[in-house]
Design a protein around this nucleic acid. Structure first.
Lengths: 215, 215
DNA sequence: GCGTAATCTAGAACGAGTTTCAATATTGGC
DNA sequence: GCCAATATTGAAACTCGTTCTAGATTACGC
């Protein structure tokens, strides 16, 4: 089985290594779900996944790397769930709102886990940019699929900008909610607001952009 | 408007205490400007501001508190500068873009300081919500002043949502730029994109909102 | 002024992320 | 199967944020 979902082109992991990696991610998810960011302690993760501390650090070079990788993992599952229940028929804008609100409801079910992953994502510095890009890519993909029912069209720069802005809003308002600085209603309103950037009709060329048509 | 810059209604500081507080903030700014978040080490801040470590912690209960307070401080100065050079004549949307891009240029001049403050702001948890709210308030104020030339109108919930979305985008794209995951052009494009949420004309009532009027 | 409470100082001590290292185990190539 | 390279283990060590303690110093009501 070389259908490994290990994102980058890192060294191809052996079976036992893949198993270790999964144990680590599972332990992380469990600890994070119980007590959030602070409860994910590297020694505990190592112990719970039956791996030496040094090994844990060989697989994930920092706590932030570990949690961002966990987020990638969770997003893959979420993406599968969302794809399984498509919301056809609605206009694109509503489909995006629907998708994000559904994801939001999912996160409300595991607030500690969400907090741990989001804090790590926001705190990540340059050394984690590859992993953060991975998360960014999968998120972009999800939103893009919500906008377009057919995935043949390539997004132009203007549309990518809209998707980026939606992602920024999504992350930040989620954080605000987790920190008790925003209500659920506010999160919903923010999402509905930013969704107005998506053009009503899926007109083909250069939609959503009256900014300059470079490149 | 407000005369004292001590935000909350904390204990009224004596002169020497006020001086200590300022020394601490100045040391923090200096260290952050040199080496970013990691270079702001509590022992160093204490030493440079000639204050015992315990005292530093009495003034700012954590590194994140300290950096968020520093951000508040910097934003006050920035707000003053921006107000001094108003951009009249432009439509509201362009004024906001102009303001944010000007702020962005300011931050490009001190990338490490910006990184330190923004990382802290994004990493802050519930225990810092009061301080984060302070920063949020001052930011909202700045954007609001850019939209309306007269400040008599109170913003409605729909307009507040637009401002929140702009703020979210502003923070997140700044972070992406700091982490090398977004170019300056992308930041600019994101800002221009999100600014489209601001109505063209300063029409008065319930502008910018066709979302439902619940609760 | 005086006494007392609050504040400040210096420094040790604690906790969790991270690094390091020698010893041991596993893997892959021949 | 054997050897060399690589990975894993266990444990100690190091860093930096944070807390704690005991003894000065300062602020302030009387």
């Amino acid at each position: 089985m070389m259908t490994t979902y290990t994102k980058g082109a890192g060294a191809p992991l052996t079976e036992r290594q893949e198993a270790r990696r999964r144990r680590i991610l599972r332990a992380t998810t469990r600890l994070a779900a119980q007590g959030g960011y602070d409860a994910v302690q590297m020694r505990e993760v190592a112990e719970m996944s039956e791996v030496a501390l040094g090994t844990l650090y060989r697989y994930f070079p920092s706590k932030v790397h570990l949690l961002v990788a966990t987020m990638y993992d969770q997003l893959e599952q979420l993406g599968g769930q969302l794809r399984r229940k498509p919301n056809k028929g609605l206009p694109p804008r509503d489909r995006v709102v629907d998708t994000l609100l559904r994801a939001f409801r999912g996160m409300q079910r595991e607030p500690h886990l969400t907090e741990a992953m989001m804090r790590a994502l926001q705190f990540a510095d340059r050394s984690v940019s590859a992993e953060v890009d991975g998360v960014s890519r999968i998120t972009t993909q999800m939103i893009y699929e919500a906008i377009h029912e057919d995935l043949t069209v390539e997004p132009g720069p203007a549309e990518l900008a809209v998707i980026r802005v939606i992602t920024h809003t999504w992350h930040s308002s989620l954080i605000s909610w987790l920190n008790g600085r925003a209500s659920i209603a506010q999160v919903r309103l923010d999402i509905e607001t930013v969704a107005r950037l998506i053009p009503e009709e899926p007109g083909s060329a250069d939609e959503a952009g009256e900014t300059q048509h470079s490149a």
